Simulated scan of single mutants.
Amino acid sequence: MSTAQTSPFVPGSLTDVANAHTMFDEFPCYQAVLGWMANFVLQPDERLGRAGAVCPRLASAIDADLVQLVAVRTAGTSIDDAVRIGQGLADLYVELFDETTFQRGALMAIFPDLDPADAAQFIDAGHARLRPEFVRRAMMLGEFHPASTVGSVHNRDFPVMQSPVPMFAVRALTTHDALFLDQPGPDRHELLRHYLDYLGDRAPTTVLRRVQARLPKTGR
């Protein structure tokens, strides 16, 4: 049985962006997410502190029909609930994208039943627990909800992770992610070691040297 047909994913809710409009009646959250993508994520914003769209890789993924949406039901709102769902989400990404599409795909898991008041703990704290496991598996996990205060890496005052509904987003780890992983935090060295494990032979020399210099001398 496909992972998308098992709990907590809503059976029949998995769809690509091109066909998501056929599910708006059943999943109005899809309409909200597609509108947010078109009007914000795919657009430039001077608050970013850099040129280009908010997410510079999403347009090509949509054009290649490699962006999938899935709805997730959750009665629990604890960090453990978020971790359990996130682990299943990682498995689903691996199932959806093979070696030819893994690097270009994106999977958005939307939580239509999650109260925005509970989203900060569920999404943000769940993300903090899940992130090392995702990076170890060569994936990045994005955390989005209406009250997010997570800022752009170039402008911390710009809450770039705000979305109309709570959601997790999954994509493959890429060489530019050193910028996001090399940030203060208890998992910093672990994340950078996973980065080297997967991308050390592909990262630009300047990036590779910076990552290696960041690790303790007793590390790799």
Rank of each mutant, 00 (worst) to 15 (best):
P166C: 03
Y30G: 08
T74H: 11
D197L: 11
D115F: 00
L69W: 11
M140S: 15
L42P: 02
H154R: 14
R193G: 11
V207C: 00
A75G: 08
G105H: 08
H194F: 09
F27W: 09
T205A: 08
G151E: 01
V54T: 14
F168H: 09
P216F: 10
Q121M: 09
E133R: 08
V83M: 06
L179M: 03
V160R: 08
F9A: 09
A59S: 13
C29K: 01
P186I: 02
M1P: 12
A20S: 12
D81E: 14
A117P: 00
S78G: 11
D25N: 14
T175V: 12
A128M: 13
G200I: 04
A119L: 05
Q121I: 10
H194W: 03
V54S: 03
Y195F: 15
G12K: 14
S13V: 13
R193I: 02
N19F: 04
D25V: 10
T205F: 00
P159Y: 09
N39Y: 05
Q183A: 13
F40H: 06
L173R: 10
I62T: 08
D65C: 07
H189E: 12
P164E: 06
F144L: 05
V170S: 04
T100C: 06
L48R: 04
V10G: 09
D80T: 14
F102Q: 06
T101V: 00
H189S: 04
F158M: 05
V17Q: 10
G151K: 01
L208S: 13
H145T: 08
L196T: 11
W36H: 12
E26H: 13
F122N: 11
I85E: 07
Y195W: 10
A64V: 02
N19W: 02
A82H: 08
L34I: 15
N39Q: 12
H145W: 09
H189L: 05
P146H: 00
L141C: 07
A38V: 06
G35M: 02
R73G: 03
G52M: 07
D80A: 15
V150T: 10
S152M: 11
A117L: 05
D118Q: 12
V94E: 03
P8A: 02
G219W: 07
Q183K: 03
G142W: 06
G12Y: 12
A20Q: 02
A128K: 14
V135C: 13
